[in-house]
Design a binder for these strands. Structure first.
Lengths: 230, 230
DNA sequence: CGGGGACTTGAATCAGGTCAACCCCAGTGG
DNA sequence: CCACTGGGGTTGACCTGATTCAAGTCCCCG
């Protein structure tokens, strides 16, 4: 998404260059606001944090580790909708129930905040309500990007884009430590584990990437990766 | 989505059967609230209502006709993210700019509401802020469904699911009048126009569907269609 | 050091895309 | 009234990229 982000820069133009359309109020982040609230929790690798269909009683802020959110189709097919990292807020719902399942990828440290507390805050504090809304909108924009990827890109583009997006998100300009398995990546990108693996190999052969074990990827030539997209 | 909706019924269980987790306050619809505001507009077939990257100065409520929202990839590839029908609110953004382009499919009648008016309302009326949020969440849930379709379903499933969803949305239990072209459907489902056309033919051969011209589809056997999904 | 899950790789297969021809029909103008 | 035109849609033949099936190899953990 380094590239996708660059594309968006063009499409939406730097904010600074545009006359402000509204006061930059309530611009702080939801995660910040949550920082003081709630209690700390730990989950081991693979444990479920919340389940699709369960009552949504908490919201979680990721403190350490990584998580995945997914939906299951009627048969067993799994579609991972997103990965989450420290600073992200997960499990936020407007309805009564969780629309997806959240799981720890590795060991995870979380901060759990009662949904009730949020509701009450939102009812009195307009700025907080705006934060909730913005947070959902941001998630929605990420989903739209995801739709574009799944609807229109080939395997090369998907994997290259995934690596760049992850690097941007983890602030890892050089070496990327993937917390998730190949199967996770496949279920996120709408591919099979085989195609993902093969594509990694191709990227390595082409010199765009150098692997040090399956989970440690050096982005040797980010421009080459970016060139594969579109 | 008649089927997808049925699936959700299972996953999330009927709300009535569950102890209420929060008071059913502010449950009314955003579109209702907007009803009084703003002025009426008309667009001809194919006209752009708002463009990706433009300042988001209005929100629109569809009164009559159908619209499509899409994003363009770097090259020309188009991904339609959603279709909209009377009662839907389109062009709602939290940021300054539109993240997608909105176009009239056929002649459309809209009601335009200034974004400023919404912002002001949201700042004073907590219930309205909640409506904004819920509306975005609903959109986001639709996107998640879309992601599942694009990531995990084959052409048959996509087209069958599309027809059922459209029928449910238009309250057309029998005969479906498609406002959009085959190309639109293809760009929504992440397929080519050829595959969509072929798939329609297959559905017709199998008796699930009967076509009366390209745009008028009789859902002869909805259960058969539902059976194709998953 | 051994076992087993995670990962890789090859060969065969297939779904969907590409290329190309054609049909259908509404609108236009002679 | 009819021939022409052009856009939308359908259909066939072929091709290709991703899946499937089937062995392997690697390496992490006990």
């Amino acid at each position: 998404m380094a590239r996708s982000a660059a594309a968006r820069e063009v499409a939406f133009a730097p904010a600074a260059a545009v006359a402000p359309l509204e006061p930059p109020a309530a611009r702080e982040d939801l995660a910040e606001t949550l920082a003081g609230l709630g209690s700390e929790l730990r989950f081991a690798a693979g444990q479920e944090i919340f389940g699709q269909g369960e009552a949504a009683e908490h919201v979680y802020r990721v403190l350490e580790g990584a998580t995945r959110s997914y939906r299951l189709a009627g048969d067993g097919r799994r579609q991972i909708t997103d990965f989450h990292f420290p600073g992200d807020v997960i499990g936020l719902e407007a309805g009564l129930r969780h629309s997806r399942t959240g799981e720890a990828i590795g060991p995870v440290r979380l901060q759990a905040v009662r949904r009730r507390a949020l509701s009450r805050l939102a009812e009195t504090d307009v700025g907080f309500a705006a934060q909730l809304w913005r947070s959902t909108v941001r998630e929605h924009l990420r989903s739209q990007d995801h739709i574009l990827v799944l609807g229109r890109q080939g395997a090369r583009e998907r994997v290259a884009g995934f690596l760049l997006a992850l690097a941007a998100r983890l602030d890892a300009p050089e070496v990327l430590d993937l917390p998730m398995s190949r199967q996770d990546i496949a279920d996120y990108l709408g591919l099979t584990i085989h195609t993902v693996s093969r594509t990694f190999s191709h990227l390595q052969e082409s010199g765009a990437v150098r692997a040090q074990g399956a989970r440690r990827i050096r982005l040797a030539d980010p421009d080459a990766l970016a060139g594969l997209i579109e």
